[in-house]
């Protein structure tokens, strides 16, 4: 989508000599091809690794891994996590840090079943109330970070625990659930073999990528993330964008909670911290793809399903339980390191 105008990176060091010394034709062409490969490699290496991973699993489990049902398991189950990763991305792209998004999602996923299941509130209304509560969480984060200027890491680490506590209070520390088929079909209705929630996630990622790439506000967001002072001196209202990023993050986290309840039907509030690392892993993994070194929604989309592919494969091989945690953590470190090395080689080689 955005590669055509990036080809200049192919020879990043050309600036080092005004009027490049003339190399023989052949060398130059070979160099250009090599540079091109580097460029492709630094952007799409992870997709290669993904295909390789699938091939290895298929080799280990012939006629078991490369099946429609496996693909459905991979692509059909991860939307709440994808929404959550996008929530994290909302603050990361402007250079902020939010660790409370999992807590916000937990609050949303608790309020809906508590209101609807225990107090018999209309489910749509319950969703609206959950959304409003989450926006309030975003406002609280933004107030401390943007208005008072407290470190975002500390603030959101604190509020993450605060929101978790509120969710536990509301649920009385019980698993809460709701059964509503109409509501469930909003997420689970099948299109092209995959549930609606998958398509929501894809649309969200593409929409987010479009905004960042093709709208003035999106470009401003990128500049606030790249250099806040440069953005301010270009007349951009930096604090409004920072404030907005926390609000947007809380809205998307609320949607993640809604997806979760619609898909699963219930939630244990104490489980929300366990969603933090997988979402972060996908977001950072996303920086290794499409736009190397930059947080980007399409990369995050790939990141989510890459990780899930690895986990499903291991589960089919008979490993379970500990595999998920180990893979999310180990996979993150490995993938980001590889991307980092590839990027450095493109720069100096």
């Amino acid at each position: 989508m955005t590669m055509s105008d990036q080809t200049g990176q192919a020879a990043p060091q050309r600036d080092d000599g005004n009027g490049t010394p003339t190399a023989p034709e052949g060398t130059q062409a070979a160099g250009a091809i090599r540079a091109r490969l580097h460029w492709l490699g630094s952007r799409y290496a992870l997709i290669g690794v993904w295909i390789l991973l699938a091939a290895v699993y298929e080799g280990l489990m012939p006629h078991l891994f490369l099946q429609v049902s496996t693909a459905q398991a991979i692509f059909g189950s991860q939307s709440p996590l994808l929404f959550l990763a996008i929530a994290a991305l909302c603050t990361f792209v402007v250079g902020e840090f939010d660790l409370s998004f999992a807590g916000v999602m937990g609050l949303s996923a608790t309020i809906i079943p508590v209101l609807s299941g225990l107090h018999h509130v209309n489910i749509a209304l319950a969703c609206v109330i959950a959304l409003a509560a989450c926006i309030a969480c975003g406002v609280v984060n933004a107030f401390f970070v943007v208005v008072l200027g407290v470190s975002s890491l500390i603030v959101t680490l604190g509020t993450a625990s605060l929101y978790l506590g509120i969710a536990e209070l509301l649920s009385d520390q019980n698993t809460v659930s709701v059964t509503d088929n109409a509501f469930a079909s909003v997420a689970l209705h099948n299109i092209l073999g995959l549930p609606l929630s998958f398509w929501y996630g894809v649309i969200l990622c593409i929409g987010f990528a479009y905004v960042l790439r093709w709208t003035p506000v999106g470009r401003h967001i990128i500049f606030v993330g790249a250099n806040r002072e440069v953005a301010r001196l270009a007349g951009i209202n930096v604090n409004r964008i920072r404030f907005g990023s926390y609000i947007a993050a809380s809205i998307v986290a609320a949607l993640a909670g809604i997806m979760l309840i619609a898909t699963v039907g219930g939630f244990d509030p104490t489980a929300s911290p366990s969603y933090l690392l997988p979402a972060l892993a996908a977001v950072f993994l996303g920086t290794a793809i499409v736009m190397p070194g930059q947080f980007n929604p399409i990369g995050t989309l790939f990141g989510i399903y890459f990780l899930e592919t690895g986990i499903i494969g291991l589960q089919l091989l008979g490993y379970s339980g500990w595999v998920q945690d180990a893979f999310y953590g180990g996979g993150l470190v490995a993938a980001v390191s590889v991307a980092h090395l590839v990027r450095n080689r493109t720069r100096t080689a």
């Binding site: 000599g17 010394p21 190399a23 540079a35």
Partner: peptide, 8 residues
């Protein structure tokens, strides 16, 4: 660097 000679 790649195809560019920056020092000779």
């Amino acid at each position: 660097f790649g195809s560019a000679r920056v020092l000779t």
